[in-house]
Design a protein around this nucleic acid. Structure first.
Length: 915
RNA sequence: GGGCGCUUAGCUCAGCUUGGUUAGAGCACCUGCCUUACAAGCAGGGGGUCGCAGGUUCGAGUCCUGCAGCGCCCA
């Protein structure tokens, strides 16, 4: 199997073919019988379906890499592992894209009509809709592509229909006229979650409303009682003052409200007020919603254009007066001068007119949260409208309980509180959208007034028999279908084998932004329709940001194209870089202006793996390799050491993966591979792999190397699947054992405790200590790396010197030491004390300046002395000795003793150098 | 207004759940090496009063309280 491998990893040469081979091998898919018949434990993730029109961005890169790491790990653990891919029809977003295309061609959706327009969207989706899924393949996502779903598929439409009808039958869906969030550009209702509040610098205007003459007496009394909102105009009319951030809505005012217990205004409750500019009069009412402490304690009430005002009207019987068109222009209910004006034009006009009449009391700057459409960023207008709603409180109960009792876990844990807070204060969900692209609301209206909601399309009215039925024009909120994703993808409402095998799933991986949009609703629907939660672990990863901390986005132009990264550095490089930054609860930050340095770490590591593998494969050669267990007795200390380190790396990786601590997995394996395998083990065995080496030692090294690389590739595979699989496939295989078909299904390393070897770890630690000290002294005295030196070594633990002598070739390789004398040595030279107390002396007659060595030693002594003083102080503290655990005290004593010895020996060395 | 989080090296961040070696990493920086696996590399090095002020404790980057600055979510 010896073959020439390129000295540099060429990701393009290996990634495409590897991925194709995995697909052909069918490793991504799993049959339900693996669970229902073979009894394997399932592990299921459903993908957060990206918008069907989306192009892959770094956020997807992060989200899907995390999922793939978990999926690949669980697959290797032998679970019946399934990752279901798919896309979301994304109602508003997709419709907007196609409308923009139409607009570019000078056309509007109304020109086409509903049917043609929807056809056109399907056409668009059919042509470009699969793009993002193809892109996921480039980053290595091991989804079961045969199960790809789309939220608008016929099969999923059946689930939507069943859920709607079922909830309607139980009165959990209802229709009603309420204030909803309305986007005047998209011309549709939005849910509360879809109306995003942005802090906006605006104004608070104070308006004067003249009182009816009959109220003057009360006004005078109120003014006398200290009501600051009441005053008299120069012409003697009494007025009251109200404040608003949206003056144009005053045209729709139908009342003024005060707090019922507010004594200042008591005489005025029931009195009439003129709405300026309109000639209308409206009553003053009392309502508990008004905060007497806020502003003047009097508020204008615009029931058709404000949610709170709508509620006040409901309690007090005030009229509803809608003064805007769907496009948020003023309608015919307002005075002629304002008709047809856009809301912001109307605002200016109203203010001007009020000022002219002396009714504008003042203006102040005011920063407040203004709701914007989450799709087009237009300012949302609260609007009175008839819509369909889901009654959320009953649905939320089990979903809230699941968090409280720990059935569902959140990582990081603080999201638990956020989730529960939202669930406890949940509001009804407006689900109808005035769009054409989406699941049509399955409701028909008969001219006789009958409303038909059924699982099958009705042909005639069950009440009057009329065939003149008209289906509701609206579609459902996109999230209404995506909330069913964890079971709709398995064919529910049919009781399919897939559903039996793969519901519920296990882990949900997503960004916190859609905790309420999606995660919470999936949990509610899971309980409502399957009787249990759709997953038990919710892992919320961070956001991808640029180095200024701004979220990466198309509009800011600060994005990085994951495919560009894959193209330039490979999928492994991208995956490793992302995962190594993926600490719990933190965002990922990448520099879009220096993509190379952002991904250098991952690229370099992938290349390092490649090169280590390349070297090992060349060194091991083609001869048969024995299983390492068969050679246990001939293993040398470094063999036992690296196997021990492998066992610890496996244990550590597993426990960190279980806790979603992905960055620690990446970091731990990075150091295991780079520092321990490459920097130490490979260097140590180089001499043992050559043709002149002792055969037993050579076989031990070859077997160990195969075992260690096999284990390391398995551990690294979930994070960097391509380079590991490529090298693993070329690795010689120990005789007598069966080789798994592919690394992707090779068993995850576990139960390696038998390889843990504390003695070997201590021995290698001492060896490393020696090498590092020699290197430091060499550097200190400028002894070039080409020059070999002899060293003197005495003391240390039992057998230490002999062990180091046995490492002759390794010492030469690693520290350029060609002779080791087991004596103290004498004369001019460099000195060091190892942590095991051994004394190192490097004769450097004529090379070094005595004074330089004295200064250096004094520095060393000072350093050790500083630490020693701290340690001694602690031990002298009686309270420490008596209160701290015995173990801690013993350790401190040991440590202090060691430091003391080190310091004494250094001082001795210094003294030996004379003045 | 309510809730949540963050502040550790020049930069980006780990470490805090469960307090106990001389606080770590990557990138950047400085010095020396093209040593036949790897210059996308190797060897060595500099750099931190862990936001501030208190408290608990034998012991605090870690736990508690307050403050300051920054950010997110909900209203």
């Amino acid at each position: 199997m010896t073959q020439e491998l390129a000295p540099r990893l060429d990701p393009k040469a290996i990634e495409g073919p590897r991925y194709a081979a995995w697909q052909e091998g069918g490793y991504f898919g799993v049959s339900p019988t693996a669970v229902t018949e073979d009894g394997r434990e399932p592990y299921v993730i459903v993908i957060p379906p990206p918008n069907v029109t989306a192009a892959l961005h770094m956020g997807h890169g992060l989200n899907n890499t995390v999922q793939d790491v978990l999926i690949r790990w669980r697959r290797m653990q032998g679970r019946a592992t399934l990752w279901v891919p798919g896309t979301d029809h994304a109602g508003i977003a997709t419709q907007n894209v196609v409308e923009r295309q139409l607009a570019a061609a000078g056309c509007h959706r109304d020109d086409l009509g509903r049917e043609k327009f929807v056809e056109r969207v399907w056409d668009f989706v059919g042509k470009t809709g699969g793009t993002i899924l193809e892109q996921l393949k480039a980053i290595g996502a091991s989804c079961d592509w045969d199960r790809t779903r789309f939220t608008l598929d016929e099969e999923l439409a059946r689930a939507v229909r069943e859920v709607f009808v079922s909830l309607y039958e139980r009165e959990l869906i209802y229709r009603g006229e309420y204030i909803i969030n309305w986007c005047p550009r998209c011309l549709t209702a939005l849910s509360n979650e879809e109306a995003e509040g942005h802090e906006t610098a605006g104004h608070l205007w104070h308006l004067r409303y003249p009182l009816a003459e009959s109220a003057y007496e009360g006004a005078a009394a109120a003014a006398a009682a200290g009501a600051e909102a009441i005053g008299q105009l120069p012409d003697g009319r009494w007025y009251l003052t109200v404040s608003t951030t949206r003056p144009e809505t005053m045209l729709g005012d139908t009342g003024v409200a005060v707090y019922p217990g507010d004594d200042r205004y008591k005489p005025l409750v029931g009195a009439d007020v003129y709405v300026p500019l309109t000639g209308r009069t409206i009553p003053i009412v009392a309502d508990r919603h008004v905060d007497p402490e806020f502003g003047s304690g009097m508020v204008k009430v615009t029931p058709a254009h404000d949610k709170n005002d709508f509620e006040i009207a409901g309690r007090t019987g005030l009229e509803l007066l809608d003064v805007m068109t769907p496009e948020a222009a003023m309608n015919d209910a307002v005075p002629e001068a304002f008709r047809g004006l856009d809301r912001f034009e109307a605002r200016k006009a109203v203010l001007k007119a009020l000022e002219d009449e002396g009714l504008l009391a003042g203006t102040e700057d005011h920063t407040h949260s203004v709701p914007h459409c989450y799709r087009c960023d237009t300012i949302v207008e609260p609007r009175l409208s008839e819509q369909w709603f889901v009654r959320m409180k009953p649905l939320a109960e089990p979903a809230l309980a699941a968090s409280k009792d720990g059935t569902i876990n959140f990582t990081p844990p603080h999201w638990k509180k956020v989730y529960e807070h939202w669930m406890e204060n949940i509001q009804d969900w407006c689900i109808s959208r005035q769009l054409w692209w989406g699941h049509r609301i399955p409701v028909w209206y008969c001219p006789c007034g009958e409303i038909i909601v059924d699982r099958e399309d009705p042909t005639a009215c069950p009440s009057c028999g009329s065939g003149e039925l008209k289906q509701d024009e609206d579609v459902l909120d996109t999230w209404f279908s995506s909330q069913l994703w964890p079971f709709s993808v398995f064919g529910w409402p049919e009781q399919t084998d897939d559903l039996a095998a793969f519901y519920p799933g296990h882990t949900l991986v997503t960004a916190p932004e859609i905790l309420f949009f999606w995660v919470a609703r999936m949990i509610m629907m899971g309980y409502e329709f399957q009787g249990e939660a759709p997953f038990t672990e919710v892992y919320l990863h961070g956001t991808v940001r640029d180095i200024q901390g701004r979220k990466m986005s198309k509009s800011l132009g600060n994005g990085i194209d994951p495919l560009g990264v894959v193209e330039a550095y490979g999928a492994d490089a991208m995956r490793f870089t992302i995962i190594s930054q993926c600490a719990i609860g933190t965002d990922i930050s990448l520099d879009h202006e220096d993509v190379e340095s952002s991904f250098a770490n991952g690229r370099n590591f992938a290349n390092k793996i490649w090169n280590a593998g390349r070297f090992a494969l060349m060194s091991i050669g083609d001869d048969p390799v024995q299983p390492v267990d068969a050679l246990r007795d001939s293993l040398l200390a470094e063999d036992r050491w690296i196997l021990s380190r492998l066992a610890r790396a496996a244990e550590e990786s597993t426990s960190q993966l279980e806790r979603f601590r992905l960055h620690e997995v990446a970091e731990g394996l990075y150091h295991f591979f780079w520092d321990e395998i490459c920097a130490w083990y490979l260097e140590l065995v180089k001499g043992r792999l050559g043709p002149d080496a002792d055969p037993a030692s050579r076989e031990a090294a070859r077997s160990t190397l195969v075992a260690v690389l096999d284990g390391a590739f398995r551990l690294l595979h979930p994070i960097v699947p391509f380079v590991t699989a490529e090298l693993w496939s070329k690795l010689p295989w120990p005789e007598g054992s069966e080789r798994p078909e592919d690394l992707i299904i090779a068993p995850w390393p576990s139960d390696l405790d038998g390889w843990i070897d504390e003695g070997a770890e201590a021995d290698l630690g001492a060896f490393q200590n020696l090498v590092v000290e020699v290197r430091r002294l060499r550097k200190e005295y400028g002894i070039g790396e080409g020059q070999r030196i002899g060293i003197h070594l005495t003391g240390g633990s039992n057998g230490f010197i002999e062990a180091m002598q046995a490492q002759g070739p390794a010492l030469e390789q690693l520290a350029r030491v060609n002779a080791l004398e087991p004596s103290a040595g004498s004369g001019v030279g460099g000195n060091a004390i190892l942590s095991n107390g051994a004394e190192l002396f490097i004769p450097l007659e004529g090379v070094i300046d005595l004074e330089q060595e004295r200064t250096r030693l004094r520095g060393e002594i000072d350093k050790v002395a500083g630490v020693l003083t701290g340690a001694q102080k602690r031990l002298q503290n009686e309270k420490f000795v008596s209160n701290a655990p015995a173990e801690v005290v013993a350790k401190a004593r040991e440590n202090a003793a060691q430091l003391e010895q080190q310091k004494a020996k250094l001082e001795e060395k210094l003294a030996g150098l004379g003045e």
